[in-house]
């Protein structure tokens, strides 16, 4: 395992190559009281956009003990609406205050004409969209003064207009904008099942050096008379098939900081810690093989 991470006055500053968990309000007290043995924590940036109060107070106390990653869900990077400067300013203040090791957003959009769906909507994978995303990610990185990671999302439709695959689009974006990739292995699996592609193809197309974080989560299967659709619900354990794909990803990319996400129907903290330990075991195997 890596050496003890460097520490600033805020708390540990770098993210170790271990599993972390998503921190949600329901677990604030349990995390402070039990200090679970996870490598790092990730929060949704927008949950700390308030001017003050308990969320920020808890985050400050918890930050003293864990490295932190800020994961945005609302910047709407891929939208053609103007970039929301107030949103970015709040994010920048949060970064200055909490000194996260990683900052990430999604390969998606969320608004048109000023109306927000507050969802992670898929993009058409066209040259026009690629130019747009390269420009927007670059603009965000310039304003924040640091590189960000961009995460692939689960999708339930594809556009007739797409001329590139999602994996080629993401690889090109990372190359041209100089951003990192947050590879969500569950999202690859969900989209692969929904659209009928081979998830291994996706992994093979992403450059080794680009991936700086991996996400794992649970999905829900909605079954109908004429088929099924997988929905990215983050409300249950990681599926065995996703663990298998994760092993493939760790084999290809090497040991990478990995996050267990769980956002609704939250179980006890110990369940998340157990999932993180499973991921740690897979990372350890890879470390051992590399040694």
């Amino acid at each position: 395992m890596s050496a003890k991470p460097a520490t600033s006055w805020l708390g540990p500053s770098s993210i170790p190559v271990r599993a972390g968990i998503g921190l949600r309000a329901e677990h604030y007290d349990a995390v402070l009281e039990t200090r679970p043995p996870v490598g790092w924590l990730e929060v949704h940036s927008e949950n700390y956009f308030g001017a003050g109060g308990k969320p920020l107070d808890y985050l400050e106390r918890i930050r003293a003990h864990y490295p932190l990653s800020l994961h945005g869900v609302g910047l709407s990077v891929g939208s053609t609406d103007p970039l929301d400067k107030l949103h970015l300013t709040k994010l920048k203040h949060l970064i200055e205050r909490f000194e996260p090791a990683l900052v990430s957003e999604h390969l998606s959009w969320g608004s048109a004409g000023g109306r927000y769906l507050n969802d992670l909507l898929p993009l058409p994978y066209t040259q026009e969209a690629l130019y747009h995303l390269v420009a927007r990610v670059s603009q965000v990185q310039d304003i924040l003064g640091r590189p960000i990671l961009i995460e692939n999302v689960s999708s339930y439709l594809q556009y007739v207009e797409s001329s590139l695959s999602e994996w080629d689009f993401l690889a090109e974006l990372a190359e041209r904008a100089g951003c990192g990739v947050l590879l969500d292995v569950n999202n690859i699996y969900v989209s692969a099942r929904n659209h009928g592609f081979d998830p291994s193809t996706y992994l093979q197309a992403i450059p080794r050096h680009a991936v700086q974080e991996i996400h794992l989560a649970g999905f829900t299967v909605n079954r109908f008379d004429d088929g099924e659709i997988l929905i990215d619900t983050h409300n249950r354990p990681v599926y065995p098939a996703v663990w298998a794909l994760y092993r493939q990803a760790v084999h290809r990319f090497g040991p990478i900081p990995t996050l267990i996400e769980w956002d609704s129907d939250l179980p006890e903290l110990a369940v998340l810690v157990g999932e993180a330990q499973q991921a740690d075991a897979i990372l350890e195997e890879r470390h051992a093989r590399a040694a």
Binding site: E46, G74, H87, G110, S111, R115, Y116
Partner: peptide, 8 residues
């Protein structure tokens, strides 16, 4: 309709 990326 929602007018912000921040659901709060």
């Amino acid at each position: 309709p929602s007018r912000s990326g921040d659901l709060h």
